[in-house]
Nucleic acid binder design. Sequence first.
DNA 1: AACCTGACTTCGG
DNA 2: TCCGAAGCCAGGT
Length: 108
Amino acid sequence: MPPPRKSQPLFFTRKVKEIIKKIPRGKVATYGQIAAYAGNPRAARQVAWILNSSSRKDKLPWHRVINRSGKISLKPNHGYEIQKMLLKKEGVEFDKSDVIDFERYLWT
DNA sequence: AACCTGACTTCGG
DNA sequence: TCCGAAGCCAGGT
């Protein structure tokens, strides 16, 4: 007989992880965008939580996720510089205000 | 077991 | 046009 399955609600989390893994190298996505793809346009917050919670163990490209303003949401000395470095490493450019150009780098 | 919080986004006044 | 509040899911206290 089949083993008991984990609770259903993890659907979103799983979906979000799948999507994040699909973000190609050198591209970025926003929290809201990912949430929308996962089925809940307003679940952007959970996306952030998932990254903070499972980015390490699931090897997610967390650095490719930024906020709607095209900027990094992490605070300086709390990952901001690391994320910026990782993106630059992939060829993503930042303007004078540290904003990423969606026209060029947003993953659709 | 209930309440709080979080790397955000959107809607209403 | 700007500011305040709600919304969403899961994990931690």
